[in-house]
Nucleic acid binder design. Sequence first.
DNA 1: GTCTATACACCGATAGAC
DNA 2: GTCTATCGGTGTATAGAC
Lengths: 196, 196
Amino acid sequence: MTEKKVALNRRMGPAGSDIWHAMLDGGEDILCQEGHAALTSRRIAERVGVKQRLVYYYFHTMDDLIVAMFRRSSQRDLNRLEEASRSEAPLRELWEICFHSTDAQLISEYMALANRLPELRTEVICFIEQSRAIQVRAICHAIERRPGKSLIPAPAVAMMAASIGLSLNREEQLGVRSGHAETFAVLDAFLDGLES
Amino acid sequence: MTEKKVALNRRMGPAGSDIWHAMLDGGEDILCQEGHAALTSRRIAERVGVKQRLVYYYFHTMDDLIVAMFRRSSQRDLNRLEEASRSEAPLRELWEICFHSTDAQLISEYMALANRLPELRTEVICFIEQSRAIQVRAICHAIERRPGKSLIPAPAVAMMAASIGLSLNREEQLGVRSGHAETFAVLDAFLDGLES
DNA sequence: GTCTATACACCGATAGAC
DNA sequence: GTCTATCGGTGTATAGAC
């Protein structure tokens, strides 16, 4: 029924080349601006300025392209998180990234795509766990420096901060604001307690 | 480019009839189990046991069907929230609904669809604001009964609880668990402080 | 109300030339 | 590396009979 016959021994282009990146860039733009329904090989080719056939020279299938897109993007995010956690005010910077990071619309598209692409799903899980680990480490370190300052365990802080950042981001983009100012105030006070 | 010519004076079936509901039920099942890519008029017809043409007798377009699906579902959720807020332990019950409510996969599909369907987007915004209003009211009421118990303003509590519930739900479904037990413990202690 | 039949667009993926 | 050309499939939506 759903068995896809893919010619796996097809001639393929190298990952990491300029045009390979350009295709992922184009795909990201489309996914972000027009949504998953518009993310097709033809439209990517059109945006990059080549013919559709070339997309299948660089990627076996469209699903492969989507996974490559997320993988590249999440690797960038993890690098930013690592860098932030080595800065002078790691918690503040991590929170900034968490809230202002990837476009909320893009995230929701990936989430929905992950529902039907097991490979993408695996990547998403891996990303969540890795980014949480980085955050927990930074929070632990901050708590150690201010003993008795936080009654909340670091893993819970990381989980809650990530959740709230995601929702705030998403709701702001939708145009919903109720409760946001109050939430920012609470978070700001909390960060003040842990970091300078 | 994207102008859709729809015959608006087509003969249409009544909203609210049995088969109308059956089509929305089928659509929800498909969206939940197979994702947006499988949500087509043909597949809904197949699941309901009628011919594809009939879907367009009850809905002008597929987009209309999707909006009707979300509207019916969100109305049910709002009713449940209203009912919960009138119970003996409203905060506990609201939290239960928030966390165990609609399937997380379904929510992520609607979120992604809302990116490209302005009508659905409007419905989503409306739902978020209404459900938050119900929650804020219940939290305010609980705080009044326990003066000095909460340092966090009610709107912030509602915003944060909704965010955390959504992410916990989503991550559990993905299979991610790190930080969850600690988060549940924190929330449980917080609820204990406000409600019995 | 429900059906058959159909128009038309678009998509994924491939073959094979240059 | 990049192209032209194409196959087979599936989608939305409509016309019009029963």
